[in-house]
């Protein structure tokens, strides 16, 4: 299994949520008109992914996967609750988002006023659920690896949205064909950025 650093780097650049899996595209396109809001949403995503992926990792490891309940009693060794993964993961994400919202509101009102509006958006951001599902598929051995994956994916998403927002800000001064303005050019740009990120493919630290 790869080292934590490698997993972090991989998930941030190579297996980038936006450029190679197109996850979280809805909010990615909707909130990338200015760098400021993009940064806000990006940070919120890093935050939530960094928490939900390790939590879901523990749940997957000790509750959901086949034979995972063996620690409770040997009788449960044959149980496979895998079919509950989707529900549990999404419930965990929704409740953690709510929890984070409350905690941030109470202890960091300044942060809340800048992040607050984005947090509810995040529960239905596919990138967050995607990170948990990919984590489950990748079968990481330790909590550290899973955390590295969660943080890396979140940062990858952050980089992607800030990148596109910066470009879109500059795009205002460009003469884009009328029918392509807005959404169309954003798609093309994301595609081109995706090709650029493919240069990282196979990069080993």
């Amino acid at each position: 299994m790869d080292s934590i650093v490698q997993i972090f780097f991989d998930s941030m650049f190579i297996k980038n949520m936006v450029f190679s899996y197109f996850l979280g595209m809805c909010s990615y396109l909707a909130v990338s008109k200015t760098v400021k809001t993009a940064t806000g949403l990006g940070i919120a995503v890093v935050f939530v992914m960094g928490i939900t992926v390790p939590v879901n990792y523990l749940l997957n490891r000790y509750v959901l996967s086949e034979g995972a309940l063996a620690w409770l009693s040997p009788d449960f060794a044959g149980m496979d609750l895998g079919f509950l993964s989707f529900i549990i993961f999404i419930a965990v994400i929704a409740s953690i988002v709510q929890l984070v919202e409350m905690v941030v509101e109470k202890f960091a009102p300044a942060l809340y006023s800048s992040l607050g509006i984005f947090l509810p958006l995040i529960a239905v951001n596919c990138a967050i659920l995607g990170a948990s599902l990919f984590m489950q598929k990748a079968d990481y051995q330790t909590l550290g690896q899973a955390t590295a994956y969660g943080l890396g994916s979140g940062l990858g998403w952050f980089v992607a949205i800030v990148c596109i927002a910066a470009i879109r800000e500059k795009m205002k001064y460009s003469d884009v064909p009328k029918p392509l303005r807005g959404l169309g050019i954003a798609f093309l740009l994301t595609g081109l950025l995706g090709f650029a990120f493919m240069a990282f493919t196979g990069f080993k630290l």
């Binding site: 450029f19 029918p179 169309g184 954003a186 093309l188």
Partner: peptide, 25 residues
């Protein structure tokens, strides 16, 4: 390659908006 899917969607949007001016931004 994965990014090409985005470019195709971009092209579809382009064609659709060319034909239906109301949708332009």
């Amino acid at each position: 390659m994965p990014p090409m899917a985005l470019i195709f969607v971009g092209a579809i949007i382009w064609i659709q908006r060319k034909r239906n001016k109301n949708l332009m931004e």
